[in-house]
Simulated scan of single mutants.
Amino acid sequence: MSSHPTQSIRLIVGLGNPGADYAATRHNAGFWWVDRLAERYGGSFRSESKFHGQVCRIQVDGRECWLLKPGTFMNRSGQSVSSLAKYYKIGLDEILVAHDELDLSPGVVRLKFGGGHAGHNGLRDIISAMGGRDFWRLRIGIDHPGNAREVVNYVLGRPSRQDGEAIERALDGAERVLPELLQGRFQLAMNAMHSG
């Protein structure tokens, strides 16, 4: 029996930086995914100042889920996440944060519960604002530039066409398991995604 919590996911946060300059950058892979979910399930994002970001509500197989794109820039993401979670009384283990992951190749996407922030400013701020790390993460592989000093320029750059296509395919796979995620069937979702 797996030790993962079986709560269903009620809030999906896509991490990214607001504004057209950042839209196509690797660091915005989390935004890309929630944009796709909104489109697929007929929702649209609207700005909500009390949540410091853009919010969308979707229904999937009769289950309601909030999608959030913080409008605060990456290193202040926690302000947005905590204000929405508090308002709708959403628990830490009912939150899934989609973010770019340097330690995975483009085309790879992994589901993970808990853990540290591995230097990711968005995750770091959410852990701090929420007072805990026990939330789900959708880690979207973007690869590592090979040199720690190059990371900032790399994540704020655009993927090559080949990498971009690989990331899109991975996001497709993650999109397909959304019904499982919203039902708390994480093992099933992982098996489907990780074998893809």
Score class of each variant (00 low, 15 high):
V151G: 06
G146P: 05
I127C: 10
Y88S: 06
L84D: 11
D163P: 06
R10P: 00
D93I: 08
D125L: 08
E180V: 03
P145I: 05
V177I: 08
S2R: 12
V81S: 07
H4F: 15
I9V: 07
F31D: 07
G122F: 13
R10K: 11
G173A: 06
W136D: 05
D143Y: 04
I58F: 04
I9R: 03
D172A: 01
I95H: 02
D103H: 11
N153A: 15
V109K: 00
A29T: 01
L171P: 02
W32A: 08
P70H: 13
W66Y: 09
V155I: 07
L181V: 02
A192T: 07
C65L: 00
M74W: 15
S105I: 02
I127K: 10
H120A: 03
S105G: 05
R57L: 13
Q162A: 14
Y87D: 10
A29W: 00
W33G: 00
R26D: 12
A174T: 03
S3D: 12
V152I: 13
Q54T: 12
V108Y: 06
L111V: 09
G157I: 01
E180K: 05
Q187K: 09
H194I: 08
S77R: 14
L92I: 13
G14N: 04
M130V: 09
G78L: 15
I95G: 03
G42Y: 01
V155K: 01
E150P: 14
I90K: 06
S3N: 14
G141T: 11
N121D: 12
F51R: 11
A20K: 10
M74A: 10
P18M: 07
D93L: 10
F186V: 01
E64N: 14
R76C: 13
A85W: 08
K50G: 06
R57W: 09
V60D: 02
D163V: 03
D93E: 12
L178Q: 03
L67V: 10
K89C: 10
L138I: 09
P145E: 08
E64I: 09
A118T: 05
V109C: 02
L111Y: 04
M74T: 09
H117C: 04
S80R: 14
G42Q: 03
L178H: 04
G30I: 09
A29I: 00
K69W: 11
R137L: 00
A170H: 00
L15M: 03
L11R: 09
G146S: 08
V13D: 01
H4A: 15
G78F: 15
V34L: 04
D172E: 01
R36N: 04
L102N: 02
I127F: 11
W66V: 07
